[in-house]
Write a protein that binds this DNA or RNA. Structure first.
Lengths: 188, 188, 188, 188
DNA sequence: TTATAAGCGAGACGGTACGTCACGTCTTGGA
DNA sequence: TCCAAGACGTGACGTACCGTCTCGCTTATAA
C-alpha cells in the first residue's frame, strides 16, 4: 500500500542501524519496536509502514550486511569442505553471532513468512554455494555418481545446526573434522 | 519454597491439560499464562508457584505424555534404521505435532535452562536409544570400527531437523530412505 | 501567507461539503481533518493552508449555510416573542440540528478564537435581531423604560441554552410558553 | 465488572489528586490519561479499570472536593438572591475556576453519560438549593403564586451560563445585580 | 479438636510494549 | 504556484500480559 518510491532512505538506514545496534549492544531482549524507533529517532509508524514486525526488520538489517558467499576451490574437495565446515562451526560457536542467529531463528518458528524469507535470502545462498562446489567435485569424479547432492548438503549442515541449536555437544574444530570425515565417507 | 507435599494434584493436571489444549486448539499465539490459568480455572499464582514460566509448563505437559522410546531390533541395522528414520520423518511431517514442537523449540531458543531440560528429558532418550542400537550393530560388525557413534546419531537426525525447521524440502518417505542410504554409506 | 486569489474554489466547496457530510452522517466522532480531506479528495495541506483547525472548517461550513435572520413583527411583542421562542426551542429540540450545534459548542470551549467567531458570526445576528424587536416594543411602550434590553435578550435565550446544553428538562412548546410568560413579566 | 471491594484506596486518591494537580498546574491540555497515570505513579489500566475516560476522572475529582451547598437565608429573598447570584457570577468570572469548568463542560457535550453525571452530581444540588429557597419565599408571599420555580431557577442561572459560555458580555457585580432585578421583576 | 498455616481461586496492581490513530509539517510530481 | 497524495516525527490512545501482591476460603497437619 505505501508508495515505496517516496520512502525516506535516511529513516530506513537509521532503523536498520538501530536494530543492529540494539541486537549487538543490549541483546535481543531490548529489541522492541519502540526501542528501535526511539534509537533511530523515528516514529513507530514508520517502522510499521514498511515492516510487518520486528523479525522482518532484523532480517533486513542482517541481509543488508550479508557478504557475498565465496567458497574456496582448490580442486581438492576434502580440503575445501574441511575449510568451509570449520568456518561454519566456528561461526556458530561464536557467542555473539550465535545469540543473534538463535533469536532470529526463534522468530522464524513463529512466523512462516519470515521463515521463508530467512531461508531464501540468508540461508539458501550458502547452501547453494556448497552444492555447486560438490557438483563440480562430482563431475571431477571425487564424489560417487549416485550421491544426491541436496541430501549431501544437508548431511553437512544438518548435524551442525542440530548440535548448535540443541546444544548436544561442543562445536570444536575436532568436531568439524570428524563431521567432514563421515560426510566424505558417505559421498565417495 | 513452596511445600510440594501440599500441592493440589487436580490443579496441576488442569494446568497441564489447559496448556496442551491451547497449544493444540488455538495455537501457540494464545499460549499466555493468563489464558492457561483461565482455561484451567486456576489462579495465576498457582502457576507461578510451581513453574518459572510458560516454557516450563509446556515442557512438563509434553513430558507427561511422552511415551517410552522403543526401537526395533531385528538384527538388521539397515532395516531397523530405515524404520526409525521413516517414523521420525513422518512425525515431523505431521502438522499437528510439528506445530507444538516448533513452538517449544522456539521457546528453548530464548531460555537456556528450558533448552537444557528439553534436550535432556525429551530429546536425549531418543538419541541414546538409537546410539545404543548403532553400538550393537558396530559390535556385530555391521558398522565400521572407526565410526564415532555420537556423530552418527547426529548424522541421522541433524538433516531431518534442519529440513523440518528451516523447511528446505519435503519430509517424505523417499527422503527418509535417501537419508538412510547416505548415512549407511558413511558408517559401513 | 497563502495567496487567496489563487485559491481553488472547487476544493474549498468540497472541503466544506465533506465537513457537513461527515457531521451529519457519521457524527462528530468521525470529524477529523484526515477524514475531511479523504472525503473531499483533497490534500491535508490544502485544509491547513486555509483554516487553522477543524473548528474553523465547521464554522465556515455552517456559516455558509446560515440563513438570514428574520423576525416576525406584528406589532404585538408578546405574539412575536412567543413565535420566536417557540421556534428556537423547537430548533434546539431537533436531534439532528442539536448534535451539530453541541459539537460546535464543544469546540468553541477549547478554542477562544473560534468561540469569538461563532459568537459574532452565528449567534450575535440572532440576538441583535431580537434586541431590535424589543427595542421597538420598548419605544412603543410595551416594555417598561427601565428594562435593560441586552439583559432581556439573555433572559430569553439563557434559560433555553442552559436547559438544552445541560439537559435539565424537556424542550417543549409548553416550556417555551412558560418562559415567555416569565420574561414578559420581568419586562412589562 | 471489577470488584470494587478490593479497590486500592491509595491509588484512587493518587489518581484523583493527580488529575486535580494537572488541571490546576499545567491546564487541561496536559490532561491525558497517560499523564495522570504517570503523575499518580499508577498503571494506566488502573484508571481504565475504574473510569471510562478522563472526563469521568475529572468529574470524580471535582465531586470529591465539592463542598455542600449552603444558601443564605435572612428571610429577605432579594438580599439572599443577590448574594448567591453575585457569588455565582464571581465564580464564573474567576479564570482559574472557569477554565476547568469550561473543559469539563466541553467533555460533557461529547459524552452524554458524563453529562448526566455532571448535571446530577455537581449542578443539580446547586439548583435545588436555590429552588428550595425560592419555594420558601413563595410560601412567605414574596413571590407570586403562579410562578413556576423550576423556570425561575433557570431564569437566574440560564443567563449567567449563556454569558459565561458564549462570552457575550462581562461577568461583573453590576451585571449580577441587574440580573437579579429582572428576575425578581418576573417573580413578584 | 481446634488453631494455624499453607495452598488455592480470584483478580487488582505497577509496568512495558503493543499496534492504531490523528495530529500538523514536509516533500514529491503533475497541472 | 497550487494542488493531491501521502510519508514523516510525535504522542496519546485503549488493550494484552507480564510477574507480584493481597484477599477470603478451603483443607490438612500439629499443638
Amino acid at each position: 500500500m505505501p508508495d515505496a518510491s517516496r520512502r525516506n532512505e535516511q529513516s530506513r538506514r537509521a532503523i536498520l542501524d538501530a536494530a543492529l545496534g540494539l541486537l549487538a549492544g543490549t541483546g535481543y531482549a531490548k529489541l522492541t519496536i519502540e526501542a528501535i524507533a526511539a534509537r533511530a529517532g523515528v516514529g513507530k509508524q514508520t517502522i510499521y509502514r514498511w515492516w510487518p514486525g520486528k523479525g522482518a526488520v532484523i532480517l533486513d538489517a542482517l541481509a543488508e550486511n550479508a557478504t557475498a558467499v565465496t567458497l574456496p576451490d582448490t580442486g581438492d574437495i576434502e580440503a575445501d569442505l574441511r575449510e568451509v565446515v570449520r568456518a561454519t562451526v566456528a561461526e556458530f560457536a561464536d557467542p555473539r553471532q550465535s545469540a543473534t542467529t538463535r533469536a532470529l531463528t526463534a522468530e522464524t518458528l513463529a512466523d512462516d513468512a519470515l521463515g521463508d524469507q530467512v531461508r531464501d535470502r540468508l540461508l539458501r545462498p550458502q547452501l547453494v554455494a556448497v552444492r555447486d562446489r560438490l557438483d563440480k567435485a562430482q563431475r571431477a569424479g571425487q564424489i560417487r555418481d549416485g550421491a544426491d547432492l541436496d541430501h549431501a548438503v544437508e548431511l553437512i549442515f544438518g548435524p551442525i545446526f542440530h548440535r548448535w541449536l540443541l546444544r548436544t555437544g561442543p562445536l570444536t574444530r575436532r568436531y568439524a573434522d570428524g563431521l567432514v570425515d563421515h560426510v566424505l565417507a558417505a559421498l565417495r
